[in-house]
Design a protein around this nucleic acid. Structure first.
Lengths: 237, 237
DNA sequence: CGACTGCTTGAGTCTGCTCAATAAAGGTGG
DNA sequence: CCACCTTTATTGAGCAGACTCAAGCAGTCG
């Protein structure tokens, strides 16, 4: 376990879709630094705080008594963890990699929101996005194949944290392990590994070794894989 | 297709957890009557209205190009359909049985909410419940067996629309077909049929014939089936 | 350098799906 | 009210996608 001193002191957010209304939060609450797999909150804890991710990645998840786990969402910089709670957290949250969050008591948040209609509005639309995201994934988990889910996941990550590399291709860093990707997609980690290999074989992606992300080789192909589980007719372009 | 005149004229809601703040909606908007499988909204439609279920059942769903379908939620009397939308509906909605809804333009709703903090608060918490429900089901679809999902579904329905019959047992009417239950749980309708039969064999439930609901024979047993996919050690009590 | 964690790959299994045939209801029209 | 037709539920047989178990490898951290 690393000590706090080894963390960079971060207080800005590098989120692409930064909602400026949330910048009001910049001055309140405390900053927490989390090591990989360190817990931020546990399902059932009394939920007094809202967390905004400053750096790194947080996973929100539910678990069963016998150890099965479903990751509900990955939270990247700029995202809010703990929005949906009432009295108690409805799910647990832990750091995926080294992460930092700003924690704001809900009480303080409510005060701020009362003064700031724009913030109120932002919270509401963040909540709406969260519902929409969860519902989209109900379709994945209920009705899509491993290949479709994984392709959809890579496209989602591309949209949220993808970058353009020097050759102009989309580069998607994946801070989470394949086990965590499996827990997000309702798949075993072996299936994630095999299906990634399949997408590489089909020419849709390249894997950055050691496993740290993917390069999208054929975006169109990946979209087709996400929408239609059928194996491609013409793989290579 | 029935004509509107054959519908009972309903303008009250028999929801158990009626949120009185929503009664403000009682005077605005129009009432629509829907025949079974009649569409209320399609994914991608411009979303100008919020619907409150007065009677019957509405299903919200997403579909893929090749005909697979995932039902996101069943809406019972008192529930709100179309809460989560932005510009356009994020999912389709259709009637499960004969149903009626009160449709309120979002514009009018916003006016009312501005005047009524309690309504604002109610909308927010309805939205929060919707997230929580979707996330609970991510766990079902991603990590639970057919048996666990079905048992969980029956318990959910008991909590929302269950009644106590003359012998004091829980009676759960199920207005939707087994195909629709399958589309809700990410299962084939045959699997729903087989798994229901299994729960009957185990003494957890009885099926009301012709298929119209279930009687919960052993609540404890059903709870165990929902939380732990393992076959019961001592079936009959 | 050694131990651990995470990824890959193979073999075999199983849950739940597909396809199919039959039965049971419900709605429609004569 | 009955005969017909359509839709829904049941049940069986076979299949397949994804899981489990297991072994081996690679990369990382201490």
């Amino acid at each position: 376990m690393r000590v706090a001193a080894t963390y960079p002191i971060i207080d800005s957010v590098d989120a692409r879709a930064t909602d400026t209304a949330f910048d009001r939060l910049g001055a309140v609450g405390v900053i927490k630094y989390l090591a990989p797999h360190e817990s931020l909150a546990l399902e059932g804890d009394s939920a007094d705080r809202l967390h905004r991710v400053l750096s790194g990645t947080i996973a929100g998840y539910k678990a069963t008594a016998d150890g099965r786990r479903q990751i509900l969402a990955f939270f990247f910089p700029g995202d809010l963890v703990g929005l949906t709670v009432g009295e108690r957290y409805a799910y647990s949250a832990e750091a995926v990699d080294h992460a930092s969050v700003r924690s704001v008591p809900h009480v303080r948040l409510r005060e701020l929101a009362a003064q700031t209609p724009a913030l109120q509005e932002s919270l509401l639309s963040a909540l709406r996005r969260e519902v929409a995201a969860a519902q989209e994934r109900l379709l994945w988990l209920g009705r899509k194949t491993a290949r479709e889910r994984l392709a959809g996941f890579l496209l989602e990550c591309d949209g949220r944290i993808g970058q353009r590399d020097k050759d102009g291709r989309r580069s998607v860093p994946l801070p989470m392990s394949q086990l965590e990707i499996g827990d997000y997609l309702g798949l075993a980690s072996e299936t994630v590994s095999r299906t990634l290999a399949e997408l590489v074989r089909d020419g849709a992606i390249d894997i950055v070794r050691p496993f740290a992300g993917v390069i999208i080789r054929n975006h169109r192909h990946l979209e087709r894989a996400a929408d239609e589980g059928a194996p491609p007719v013409n793989a290579r372009v």
